[in-house]
Design a protein around this nucleic acid. Structure first.
Length: 376
RNA sequence: GGGGGAAUACCAGAGUGGCCAAAUGGGACAGACUGUAAAUCUGUUGGCUUCGCCUUCGGUGGUUCGAAUCCACCUUCCCCCA
């Protein structure tokens, strides 16, 4: 993997660049749609490429390991061959599941024992095992196994957890270096900064992560319920420490406004379930604000979903029709909303990139943020 | 023509003397969702001057301290027999 900065913004820390992988280029800043179980929910590959213009998608180590399982993934020749996505893939390590499935897992120095949410069976995830699984999945970008701490999280726990994440990282790196890709293209490993909302821990973690000299670095443990200002503060602090010449990935973020603010702080990569999950639940993001498509106000609104929107669905269907689909619980409603939202997110980061290249990102960002989160 | 049954909030449907402004579904209305156990979850759904009060359970009248619940008649609907 290679990263090259093409331009930096004068009014902020934003950068525009390009990441090169064996599965193609990624123009940054970028939003990466989440495809947990090997599919971006409710989305066809064709629309992901031609309409949404996604450049890289996520998969999830925990979910893919449980189903379809490593046997199938290996026989398929990796996830790219299995699901047909021939562009870059990044896999989350299962660190988020350590947080989200906290009721059914147990943490030790060795790793995490998960109780499967599917059949209750027990599985041990160690840093070494997680590297092996991601080798088998064949992700272009593999993530280190970490603990995503919850919010709120007391200082002592955050500190202890951060140190476990660091020790796990050393094991990840070692095992990663001792193993080879299975399918003939290169893979890279991103470490993850933790430290909850504590400045000294974040600083310590960022310095440790920076010392690994990885090809890209991630910031985890944010957007888990803390106030947005706190998230920005931590992001800013960490970005100031992580190497400038490597892409920075802010995990799990976020709303359109969060993303623009993150870009302004020097983040290059984002992922979030919001465009797809909220889309399936009837919420649309547009450049003029958010719409709850289930609301009565759209009942007789026969105007396009979004005039001049980024997706073909925007002019193809009307608001009233989309509202009807949600009320009738028609699958097409979820498909349209997901496609619209993803296309919008990719459009947004693409615009951000153009403004960074043009040198007027900061002012553009400020006017956009105002509009984006209005309720229509 | 004869016999039987039923009428409850937007709909369906519990409730058969006080704990009932009335269960539960559905619908409707609104909200939530941030490295996906999510096509999920939460709230509201008679009115008001809302720690309480008023008007509601087909209609009218009655029994009772007290009625959605018991009685009489009326209206409407359903089923069976002819």
């Amino acid at each position: 993997m290679n990263y090259k900065i093409l331009a930096t913004d004068s009014g902020s820390k934003a950068r525009a660049g390009v990441i090169t992988t064996d599965h193609g280029e990624i123009l940054t800043p970028i939003f990466m749609p989440v495809g947990t179980a090997g599919s971006v929910k409710a989305m066809h590959l064709r629309d992901m490429k031609d309409d949404v213009k996604a450049q890289i998608i996520l998969g999830n180590t925990y979910h893919l390991y449980l189903r379809p399982g490593l046997d199938v993934l290996q026989k398929a020749g990796g996830l790219h061959k299995f699901n047909g996505w021939n562009k870059p893939i990044l896999t989350d390590s299962g660190g988020y599941q350590v947080y989200s499935l906290s009721g059914t897992r147990k943490l030790t120095e060795e790793g995490a024992v998960f109780q499967s949410h599917i059949d209750g069976s027990r599985h041990l995830f160690t840093p070494e095992r997680v590297m092996d699984i991601q080798r088998t999945i064949g992700a272009d970008i593999m993530m280190a196994f970490d603990e995503c701490t919850p919010y709120p999280c007391d200082y002592d726990y955050a500190k202890k957890s951060m140190h476990i994440t660091h020790r796990w990282l050393e094991r990840c790196v070692k095992h990663f270096n001792n193993t080879e890709p299975l399918y003939g293209y290169s893979q890279t490993l991103f470490p993850i900064v933790q430290g909850s909302v504590y400045k000294d821990l974040r600083k310590q973690s960022a310095e440790f992560i920076a010392s690994q000299n990885a090809e890209g670095n991630a910031i985890g443990g944010l957007s888990v319920g803390e106030p947005a200002e706190m998230m920005y503060e931590m992001t800013e602090l960490v970005c100031g420490i992580l190497p400038k010449d490597k892409p920075r990935y802010l995990m799990g973020v976020g709303t359109p406004a969060n993303i623009l603010e993150g870009i302004a702080l020097g983040i290059d990569m984002f992922d979030c379930v919001m465009p797809t999950r909220n889309g399936r639940n009837g919420m649309l993001f547009t450049k003029n604000g958010i719409m709850n498509m289930k609301n009565e106000k759209w009942k007789n609104d026969f105007s396009p979903i979004e005039e001049g929107g980024a997706s073909e669905v925007d002019e193809m269907y009307t608001k009233a029709y989309l509202r009807h689909l949600f009320h009738a619980k028609e699958i097409l409603g979820m498909m349209i909303a997901s496609q619209h939202n993803l296309a919008f997110y990719l459009w947004l980061v693409g615009e951000a990139r153009q403004h960074i290249l043009a040198g007027d990102f900061a002012s553009w960002k400020n006017t956009m943020v105002e509009r984006l989160m209005q309720r229509l």
